[in-house]
């Protein structure tokens, strides 16, 4: 009886396991080139900054956005303004304000990925970006391959229709 129950439990576990698509595995973690400013996510998270404080579109737009110098300097004009890394911000601001951040996560242009839709559906930032708040330097730790996206969609019973995410044109 106990054996039968164990088999049944095992069967149910397998039957209910979220679908995992087979595809090429990304080699993770994937380190990206050095950032123009040595920014620590860990330190800023510890200071109780929310993701959207620096990535203003993270909960409201398609793209999360990367902070321009002015956004950083809104705090750092008064907080450790003489830190060498903060000084770099001033230099970027003088050149127009854009900081040439090296993107860690990126989906191809033909993929419609909306941060607003995902956070609106209750998906935490960590689900796609990993334990950012624990890292000084970010590397890509979570796969954003098509199979990873599809497995996640399948587990949450969200459409895997090609055109749910993809622009037309193959």
């Amino acid at each position: 009886m106990r054996v039968a129950a164990a088999f049944l439990a095992a069967f149910l576990l397998v039957a209910q396991a979220p679908r995992q698509y087979q595809g090429k595995e990304e080699k993770l973690p994937l380190e990206v080139g050095p950032q123009p400013v040595a920014f620590s996510h860990k330190q800023h998270a510890a200071a109780k900054l929310a993701c959207a404080d620096c990535h203003p579109g993270a909960t409201s737009k398609e793209r999360a956005g990367l902070p321009a110098a002015s956004r950083c300097l809104a705090c750092h004009r008064t907080i450790v303004p003489d830190h060498p890394e903060v000084r770099k911000l001033g230099a970027f601001e003088k050149k127009g304000g854009r900081i040439p951040w090296v993107r860690v996560y990126q989906v191809p242009e033909f993929v419609f990925f909306s941060h607003a839709s995902h956070t609106g559906a209750g998906i935490d930032c960590e689900t796609c970006h990993g334990p950012v708040a624990e890292r000084d330097v970010l590397a890509k730790e979570v796969s954003t391959s098509m199979t990873a996206c599809m497995s996640c969609h399948a587990a949450r019973e969200v459409s895997n229709d090609c055109h749910f995410c993809h622009a037309l044109g193959f």
Binding site: E62, R63, E109, F110, F112, D161, C162, H163, A167, L168, G169
Partner: peptide
């Protein structure tokens, strides 16, 4: 049933075509 969707600044193309619901 499709619509053109404006892509963010810096994209290769200014628009991509998107299905309203199905292909």
């Amino acid at each position: 049933l499709f619509r053109m969707v404006r892509r963010p600044e810096g994209s290769t193309l200014p628009y991509r075509l998107r299905a309203v619901k199905h292909e």
